[in-house]
Design a protein around this nucleic acid. Structure first.
Length: 260
DNA sequence: ATGCCTGTCCGTGACAGA
């Protein structure tokens, strides 16, 4: 089973690339972030035409997440628990039933957190703690679970072209990395790092200053696996080619293959 | 470099993103 995550930076602007990805890579499940539209504006019909079921948790203008699946989606649940005041659409969870059992999937768009001196940074850290609390509860099901998305977290110096330049950025601040390590510490595996320990494996290149051409990238899109999912992991891929297309997203898809 | 680029909105510049 191929499970992918992709921050498309507007599903409307990226629809052709998304349909090409679905046709070309034939993922079983895709978690989308930054769809930047309300539910009614999501291109559901075009995606269903390729054989996918669709669950959307949209928002006008910003944010917005979705899950696409060839197999039926059950127990579709939007919103991360723990803050009723939080109206930003950044979390969508669902269960995919396979012949061999269920796999639970979440599409995650963690807050950016910049500028650090504003309330955006504590919002990011609080969101990460809420995610850790919720994810800890999900581990009790002892089932394959994949938390996939744009975490806006650079886990390690290996994951950025120039670590020193990012020290004061919300994506790499010690508090951010520490909170991400706590999430991993409750029992999750960073799928990419389970397969490949090299530096320079990036998933995002800024649109500005020729970041793509100079390979000034960062790794911030992650698939975190429960033990039952990690036991089934057979491969991971960064779909770097999509960054070289016309009018690309600044993020590329990342996928895992699970023997499910 | 306060910069660079891209996308959204009751737009015509401000904001968010990372």
């Amino acid at each position: 089973m191929l499970i992918a995550t992709w921050n498309v930076n507007s599903v409307k602007q990226r629809l052709d690339h998304l349909l090409d990805f679905l046709s070309g890579s034939a993922p079983d499940v895709v978690c989308l972030q930054e769809i930047k539209c309300v539910d009614e504006a999501f291109p559901t019909a075009e995606i269903e035409a390729l054989g996918y079921n669709v669950a959307v948790h949209g928002q006008k203008g910003f944010n917005g997440v979705a899950i696409l699946s060839k197999l039926p989606l059950e127990d579709v649940t939007p919103r991360l628990p723990g803050d009723e005041e939080d109206v930003q659409s950044r979390y969508l969870e669902a269960v995919v039933s396979t012949r061999t059992g269920a796999v639970r999937v979440a599409s995650i768009y963690l807050p950016n957190g910049n500028p650090v001196a504003t309330d955006k940074f504590p919002y990011k850290l609080a969101w990460l703690e809420r995610l850790t609390r919720h994810a800890t509860g999900l581990l009790a099901y002892e089932e394959p679970l994949v938390l996939a998305g744009d975490y806006n977290v650079i886990p390690d110096a290996r994951d950025v072209y120039d670590a020193a330049a990012w020290l004061d950025d919300a994506l790499y601040r010690p508090e951010t990395r520490s909170a991400f390590r706590r999430l991993l510490g409750v029992g999750f595996t960073d799928a990419l790092r389970a397969c490949d320990d090299r530096s320079g494996l990036y998933t995002f290149w800024d649109y500005q200053a020729g970041a793509w051409q100079r390979n000034k990238g960062i790794r911030i899109d992650h698939l975190l696996l429960s033990p039952q999912a990690a036991d089934r992991l057979t491969g991971v891929e960064i779909h770097k080619g999509t960054r070289a297309l016309e009018k690309p997203s600044d993020h590329v898809p990342v996928s895992v293959t699970l023997d499910l």
